[in-house]
Design a protein around this nucleic acid. Structure first.
Lengths: 236, 236
DNA sequence: ACCTGAACACCGTTCAAGT
DNA sequence: ACCTGAACACCGTTCAAGT
């Protein structure tokens, strides 16, 4: 999904002082370390040893920078060759690669889920996914729906997996949440009570750790299998 | 999913001057009208005719307010009774209800996708979804995975559907994107070129309008059917 | 308890000016 | 073209003080 960015440090003074890719790269690293809400044009500029306007000149507005950083995450993915591979194995493999890339930059997941549905620069992904699904037997409207099914599943599901609780400083809400969950009325929440041991900290809306600290590997694999089985059923 | 908030205007002076629910409600309406990025404690306070600190006193920090507003969106949903209904019909119906609720407040979709995976206050949803899936035949780990599959799909997929492009002011990037898309090299993007008419503005990463202006109804129904078919296949 | 009023330390963006 | 330096109009949050 695009060539790797050059890894050279910003120290060497060859070429122009700053490039757009440099700024995006620095922003990515900054967000990885300090979190998305800590990112500001001023602090990033300070860390890069320039004035805020230098950044604006290269990347435009802040939200444009963030969008560029989000798109940058998926560029690390190198898609496997789709020939000599069953369509379902290829889809599953690509799903795992996307998830891995997103897990490598968990602080960016909010902006990936909420901006990447509408974007350019991922055309190689589209091209090959469409090609594979077409060869699987989908065509016309069904092809578009199949594409949207798996693409929406991957990006959307992992976004939710990596979602975090309220960005409050203290971690006490976790203990409070756990206590509240365990002390629900068994008469009004019988199914929840029955499966409490399985649910707590393992399922959406009943967990307190995000998918960053507590990856939902097995659930993802199961959900992925559901996609494949469902698509296969639609083909017949 | 919880009782409706009282609809009384903030004008009447009965009881205390302000309540937490009032602030959340006002914030929800504000975001619906002006967008999420326009929300600030100061402007919301001004619109409510109070000082910023009055808001802080009731809802704490801004990110806590936003989390509360996000959770508030799903509280409008009234779950259908799950008895006298096949499990798959119930799941499909609830999926459509969740989607409808999210579409009613599209400006909140980023924060729903990125925060609602870890939250309380949705226990009625969990209870009944788990109950239905259990009656469908899932148990133990498979039950949790089935729950995570459909919950992650609904919230994640619709988040992606409602995702919008860069929050830039001018709408020219849309025309530029469309032109760039239509003028790709057919030799390097054959599948994309073959299906251009179907893809453009209809599929993730090849559309310029968000799911707010351009709902992906058919693709959602197709994806939902894939979930059902896949889950059904796993049951046997 | 609930809110005012002022203050602190930020922030994104713009604009003229330099080179 | 690329960046400095200063300025403008904000922002979230805190703190003392009122009632």
């Amino acid at each position: 999904m695009g060539e790797n960015r050059s890894r050279r440090a910003r120290a060497d003074r060859s070429g122009p002082g700053l490039s757009r890719a440099d700024v995006v790269e620095a922003a990515l690293r900054f967000v990885d370390v300090h979190g998305l809400e800590a990112l500001s044009m001023r602090t990033l500029a300070k860390e890069m040893g320039v004035y805020p306007n230098a950044l604006h000149w290269h990347v435009g507005t802040k939200s444009e920078l963030v969008a560029a950083v989000a798109a940058r995450v998926l560029e690390d993915i190198v898609l496997p060759p789709q020939r000599d591979m069953p369509w379902d194995a290829w889809v599953a493999e690509v799903a795992r690669l996307c998830r891995r890339a997103m897990h490598q930059h968990p602080n960016l997941s909010p902006v990936i889920g909420s901006q990447l549905g509408v974007t350019a620069s991922s055309l190689p992904f589209v091209e090959r996914m469409v090609d594979v699904l077409e060869r699987a037997g989908f065509s016309a409207e069904d092809l578009i729906h199949a594409y949207n099914t798996v693409t929406g599943f991957i990006l959307g599901w992992v976004t939710l997996e990596l979602s975090s609780g309220p960005a409050t400083e203290d971690e006490d809400w976790k203990k409070g949440f756990a206590k509240q969950l365990r002390s629900v009325n068994p008469n009004v929440y019988p199914a929840l009570t029955r499966n409490m041991k399985l649910l707590e900290n393992n399922a959406f809306m009943t967990r307190w750790d995000s998918g960053c600290e507590r990856p939902m590997d097995l659930s993802f694999e199961a959900a992925l299998e559901v996609q494949i089985l469902g698509l296969r059923a639609k083909l017949t």
